[in-house]
Every structure is written in structure tokens, then in C-alpha cells.
Amino acid sequence: MRFQLTEDQRALRAGVRELLAARFDREALRAAVDTPGLDRALWRALGAAGFFALRLPEDEGGVGLGLPEAVLLFEEAGRVLLPGPLVATHLAAGVVEGAATGETVVTSVDGSLVEWLDAADVVRVGDARTVEKDALAAVPLRSLDPLTPLHRTAPDSALHGARDGAHDVVAAAALLTAAEQLGTAARTCELAVQHARAREQFGQPIGAFQAVKHLCAEMLVRTELARAAVYAAAVTADPLDIAAARLLADEAALQGARDCLQVHGGMGFTWEADVHLHLKRAWVRSRRGGSAAGAEEALAADLLTARGTSGGHML
């Protein structure tokens, strides 16, 4: 057993971080907030870097890597709040023409919501089906997250509530979303720590006060627990491991963003600080794939099975 990143995986993560720092730095983030819309050049750059084709076999023009590498990419994307229907396009690679290279932007219907509908070239329902935008009769919402345009499908639409598709694709979508949440959890912890070290009150950095220090410590604890769950689920691809990863990553991202906001004090409540962008995105991601109740119920039901009770060691 060697449950640690391999050298290749470390290199991959460093490479993605470098690419994103060059192509989507803080200035780009704030510009995207001011001028909504999908940056097609960035999308193609992601495609060229193998972001979407990562898990396609090499003989199909892909990179030939797996879910463990994919979660590292999506964690980095989550850290910098990279906008766009990343998960849907990644999952469409090899299925929808041009998705793998970043030429085609693919989104998907998730329950009654569709992210990035106007910007998308192709809309998918579940695993295989592609639908015309008009057939959705979708109406735009004033999206809570300035970096995620949202549409709601019409209540009488035949597609409303559609969340079907091959189980492994649904599970992969949940896992990649959890990886993005992990990125937010890690990043908001860093931002809180940076602020707590720099900001002085009562003659010392606020991070020297235990009330603040302990908030930050708990942020790291939640992040590291979520990291272990997300990485392990990427290795096993077990639906219950993925359900667990999703619950812990949601918790780490949502509470992490809130605590980061709290540590920032009044600045945390401003539009200018990035904290709210993390919290709002985390809220959007936490709605993907339905509510958390489904994951909790699935894990609870498993406790009643022989596998849950004992039988063999835990892989």
C-alpha cells in the first residue's frame, strides 16, 4: 500500500497549477466576474493541456490517465475558481465531437438546473442523450454565483428532473465536483491563514488569538479529511466511497468558505474580496447531483448489508 501521490502525480499537479497561474490568475478571475462569459481561448488552452482528454485512451488521442489524476486537475481548478462547465465537458470527451480538444463546450442538465447554457455548444442529458437547447424551454436565473450562469428547465419539460445516465458517469461527475470542492476548501484555508498572519489588531496578528487560530485549524482538519476521502474514492471508484467523498468535500468547502469569510472580518463581506466567490461557487457545486440526502441514505443503507457489518478488510 502506498497511498501518497506518485512523483508523476506531483508533477502533474505542479504543471496544472503553473498553467492556471499563467492563464487564469487573480486578475483574470476578477475580469471574469466583471465581464461574464466563457473564455473560448482559455477553454482551448485547457483542451490542449489535456484537461478534457485526460482519461481518454492514448490511441483515441487522450492522455490515458485515470480518475486519481483527474481529481488532482479538478482540485486545482477548484482552487482558482476556474469558470465553465468543466465536469460536463470532461465527461463528454470521446463522446461529443470536439469536447476532448476544447473546441466544443458541453454542459449537462442536472435536475432542474443547467450551468452555462448560453455558452454551451452541446447540452447533454444523462450519459448519452444530447438535446436541443430549445427543447429544454429553460429560463435564466439571476445566478447566485457571478461566475456560473444558471438556467432552470421548465417544470413541464420532459427533461425536468433528468439525472439518469450510466452509474459510473454520474459517480465520476460527483467525484470531480468533490475534487473542486476540495480545492475551495484548501484555498480558503490558505486565504484565511494569510489574512490572519498579516492583519494586526490589539498589537498582534489576529492569528495569534486562539479564537482565530482554532477556526483555521479546523479548516485544515476538514480539508485533510476530505482530501483523504476524495483521493481514495478516485482510486477505488466505489460509489459509496464517492458518496462519502462528496459529503466531506461539501462540508470542507462550505464551512471553509464561511470561516474564511469570518476570519476576514468586514473585508470578507465585500464584493472586492474573493471569499464570497468561493462560498457562492461551493453552494452551486453542492447542489449538483441532487441533495446530500441521497448520499447519506446510500451510505446508511450499506450499513445494513453484510459488507457494512464486517467481512474482509477494508480496501
Binding site: 502506498r2 497511498f3 458518496a243 440526502a293 446508511a300
Partner: peptide
Amino acid sequence: RRRLGRLSAEFRALWRLTQWNVS
């Protein structure tokens, strides 16, 4: 039931964190 499910997630993750730390 949901509380039990959440605890299951918790202990699954703690097991993974153990494996991570041991590795």
C-alpha cells in the same frame, strides 16, 4: 438514517486518512 450515513462517511474517511498517514 441520514445521521448514520454521515457517520459512515466520517469513519470511511478516517480510515483513508489513517492509510494516508501510514503511507
